[in-house]
Computed example of a mutant assay.
Amino acid sequence: MVKVKVPATTANIGPGFDCLGMALELFNIIEVEEIKTGLEIIIPDKDKKYIENDENNLVYQSMKSLFDKVDCHPKGLRITLMNNIPLTRGLGSSAACIAGGMTAANELIGKPLTNSEIIFLAAKMDGHPDNVLPALIGGLTVGCLLENEVKYVKIDLPSQLKILVLIPNFHFPTKKARSILPKSLPFEDAVFNLSRLGLLVSSLMTDNFDNLPIALQDKIHQPYRKDFIPHWEEITSKLLEFGSRGYFISGAGPSIVGFLDKDYEKVRNKTVEFLSKYEENWEVEILNVSNSGLEVINSERSNERY
């Protein structure tokens, strides 16, 4: 039996559309074991109406892609999912399925692929590296998907920097979030994002958190997606007032994320109190950055191959 622990991620960080992501200390657990025949997928009751329990399941699809890659297919599988990452909230639930499924599959059949090969296979399946990459290796990652590999840099952020996460009770499917984006951008908008992305990464690397409110600005996706988040302007202005070092839409949304470097519980309490006046229910969490990423916590292959 193989058991992996895979973190949530926040991606599209500010101007870092499809390239900049970060792992968070909120984890899903995936257990996989080989059985004599068939496919069994065990899902928590609360998630059964959202997650397929057949061959369309994303964890299974991710495992199958790796089995196909190396031409090694177990006779049967039992997959048990323990989910803590909210679904379709922009916190990398799909990337956790891909990263966790591929890693579990690789462990189950004797690790035929290297970590670099899994990173590429996962990024290719997801379409971009900004979620699967930090899920696999942790920290803040900058990644570029090439034809046959992913080039990336991992940055371990200081422990004082914590992540304020506002998770609403409504969904925003990634497919819909993609469909509303423009097909092209003005030249000046591209320059705007490039300058902010450089400022953002360098500021995080040098602990220059005063730059973050400007460095997190974006003209590629946030202007188009923010209208689907009720009270966006009021909420984000309050986050800065309460002490957040900046804010951004997490992934495709609708969760909102802010950076904190002090007064963590004070900021959280003020945020909870402010959000309570709206009809939408918001869960507010303070999470650490997961600098270690995915962890294999059990890897015992059966001596018998069915």
Results as ranks from 00 to 15, higher is better:
2 V>L: 13
10 T>K: 00
12 N>L: 10
13 I>A: 07
15 P>W: 08
18 D>P: 07
22 M>L: 15
28 N>T: 09
33 E>G: 09
47 D>S: 15
47 D>R: 14
48 K>I: 13
52 E>P: 12
61 Q>N: 13
68 D>Q: 04
69 K>H: 09
72 C>A: 07
74 P>A: 07
77 L>K: 06
77 L>G: 01
80 T>M: 02
83 N>G: 06
83 N>A: 08
84 N>C: 03
89 R>I: 10
101 G>T: 02
102 M>R: 07
112 P>E: 11
115 N>T: 01
121 L>K: 07
126 D>W: 12
129 P>M: 02
138 G>Y: 06
146 L>T: 09
149 E>S: 15
155 I>Y: 15
163 I>E: 08
164 L>W: 01
168 P>T: 13
175 K>D: 13
175 K>Y: 02
176 K>S: 01
177 A>L: 03
178 R>H: 07
179 S>L: 04
183 K>F: 11
183 K>A: 08
194 L>H: 07
194 L>A: 12
204 L>K: 12
206 T>G: 05
213 P>D: 04
215 A>K: 02
228 F>A: 05
231 H>C: 01
240 L>D: 15
242 F>M: 14
243 G>E: 14
244 S>Y: 14
246 G>Q: 09
256 I>K: 04
261 D>W: 10
262 K>C: 11
264 Y>N: 01
266 K>E: 11
266 K>M: 07
270 K>G: 15
273 E>F: 03
275 L>R: 02
277 K>E: 12
278 Y>N: 09
281 N>E: 14
282 W>G: 03
283 E>M: 10
287 L>R: 10
287 L>N: 10
291 N>E: 15
293 G>N: 02
293 G>P: 03
300 E>I: 13
